[in-house]
Design a protein around this nucleic acid. Structure first.
Lengths: 355, 355
DNA sequence: ACGGGGTGTGTTAACCTTAACAGGCGGTTG
DNA sequence: CAACCGCCTGTTAAGGTTAACACACCCCGT
């Protein structure tokens, strides 16, 4: 239509008002569809609005109203199907309640974690949901914002604050069940791929593995634990096929190699499977394997992957509802926590007799 | 530390100023680290800032400065590795230039497309990058915003506007090459999975398939084209393993079934492979298959998947740079376009002799 | 005739920040 | 010694919107 001369300023309520012969307040009422406006006036205002190509200024609006009807979601890794499903369910709930959703990605870096919090706080979102891995500087920043009154809900983040709710899957039990399943099949020498031993043992599913081994009186050899260090300041790195592939190679090279492995997630499992096949071994006969997450592809692998499914949708919904509760309340409210069950999905990669 | 009584209003510049015995302007200078402030005053202000837990108000700031140092990225499907990589590279470039990135997801729905544009425009982002599939209402909304002066760059969206740049992969050629590769291997009866025939033939890689077939004088039977309709108002649906699985089943049931297929993307290919194996057929002997995207898993499949790789990173970077150019300019500038080459990655799913 | 409720519009005063300009002060330069 | 510059701080006036209140009008019931 018209030439866009970007130097022309945006039309404002006042411009529309002048053009329609009313006050800005009346225009505001038309734009926001609240308050009384006669049909005739509304009509006139509407015409002016489209003639001048008006669009309301959300900054000014947010400034005045002290709310933006927007919430933020901070994800560690956007490529993860878990994160994607989380985002989807959060968005569904929030958008039904009239909130917009902005997603920020931290790439699992503490620095970016903070940058994301800052960006969202700057834009004065009404609340945020955090689904990134815990790290000290990030936790501190989070505390600061929570104490300033910003509603915050955590998903699976190992951080506790009296005024932030937590939603998580019971990954400890998931890891325990997965390992126990392997033990039940007769395996004694079971490896874990996806982490190297460090002091900060925040990875729950790994803890579950350790506990299940111990509970059955099995020895956990350090050499059976392979992968990458979890240092909170790092690149995504530790959830990839690469780690699984390399890790499995290391395990296969052991003098007394394991007969089964538990991989920290399905991607890692897929990489591991690749290495197993490359070595000419068969799954599950020579090596049984369990993954974690039940990504859509898991069922399509050959053999189909035994894995642990977390209730992703439900976590997203619960987090969204916690956040709504918090935003609706007009004072501080007590912390709530919801830990959800995982389900072991047994497929053929752990030696179930083929149908 | 302190109780968070959320009813207390946020501290403002004025509060800090009062507490430190200076004017708001001086505090502003301290906060933004510009202008002259004596070391001693700065010190005093800093103390007041942390005592009152001050945080600047980005809305007021953006309102006054007429910019937010933030850009938006609209994605159709966050779970797609392509989208994830795009987001990552865009963020890298933009954050090096001091911009924040907010991501919105449209779930491939025209309605959500518009909602995302509106949300970002409301927050007065300084520019947006759009990587969702084209649809009429979305295109109209986009035009409106572009004409209002908002810098917009498109990635792989089939929509043209004189003031919006475009970055895309040459998916036509990618599809052509993939198909030609199959033809070169001697296949004559080649299927396509991932779309059903409609009039709006916007899927370039599919066009490439058609063209390559025609160029070799091969007949394209409608029955060989399976999948889901592309109607722009729909759920992600058409990129999933499900579609590949179902589609392949349909192809296998044909009287004269194809000896090779080209799948619209790797996920679809994976589903298809699943169906092929389930039918007891071998790849590539009984059925050759090519995917698209070269997702990290493609190399780890069995057999490793032949696929077409698009320069994802490069597209994200190019888009970011186009956007920076547009935002730096202070008037309308001519449209630019960058179409990038794809690369056929030949692996074993199309019958290359195993190493 | 009067009180009351619904309807339509206007006025005022923030919301919080920063650009632009205006000084003042001490020291250096020609 | 006047002019000028670097440093430091303050004043003023937007930036675009809406909550709260005020008022005027009309119709209704009593």
């Amino acid at each position: 239509m018209s030439h866009s001369s970007s130097k022309k300023k945006h039309a404002t309520l006042a411009d529309i008002a002048a053009s329609a012969g009313v006050t800005p307040m009346t225009v505001s009422r038309v734009v926001n569809q609240n308050g009384y406006v006669s049909a005739e006036t509304r009509e006139r205002v509407m015409r002016a609005i489209s003639a001048l190509n008006y669009r309301r200024n959300g900054l000014a609006r947010g400034l005045k109203r002290q709310r933006t009807d927007t919430i933020g979601l901070v994800l560690g890794d956007i490529a993860n199907p878990f994160a994607a499903e989380l985002a989807r369910s959060v968005r569904e709930v929030m958008s039904a309640r009239g909130y917009n959703l902005f997603i920020c990605v931290s790439e699992h870096s503490a620095k970016e974690d903070i940058a994301a919090f800052d960006a969202l706080a700057d834009h004065r979102v009404d609340g945020i949901i955090v689904a990134t891995r815990a790290n000290k500087p990030g936790n501190d920043k989070l505390s600061e914002m929570i104490e300033r009154g910003l509603p915050v809900v955590l998903i699976g983040r190992d951080f506790r604050h009296q005024s932030a709710d937590l939603v998580a899957a019971d990954n400890f039990k998931g890891g325990y069940d997965a390992t126990e399943h392997l033990i039940g099949l007769g395996h004694k020498n079971i490896g874990f791929i996806g982490i190297t031993l460090t002091s900060g043992l925040a990875l729950r599913r790994f803890q579950g593995y350790l506990d299940a081994m111990r509970a059955s009186g099995l020895r956990v050899n350090d050499r059976l634990i392979v992968g990458r260090t979890e240092d909170g300041e790092q690149w995504p790195g530790y959830s990839t096929e690469e780690v699984g592939y390399e890790g499995m190679k290391r395990l296969l090279a052991l003098r007394k190699r394991p007969t089964a492995v538990f991989a920290r997630n399905d991607f890692t499992a897929i990489g591991a499977i690749s290495a197993i096949k490359e070595a000419g071994l068969s799954i599950p006969h020579d090596m049984a394997i369990v993954g974690y997450d039940d990504v859509p592809l898991a069922a399509h692998m050959s053999p189909p992957l035994t894995t642990v499914r977390q209730p992703t949708r439900e976590q997203g919904q619960a987090a969204a509802e916690f956040l709504l509760r918090r935003m609706d309340a007009d004072g501080p409210i007590p912390r709530e926590e919801k830990i959800m069950e995982c389900a072991l999905i047994v497929r053929e990669s752990t030696g179930v007799v083929a149908r």
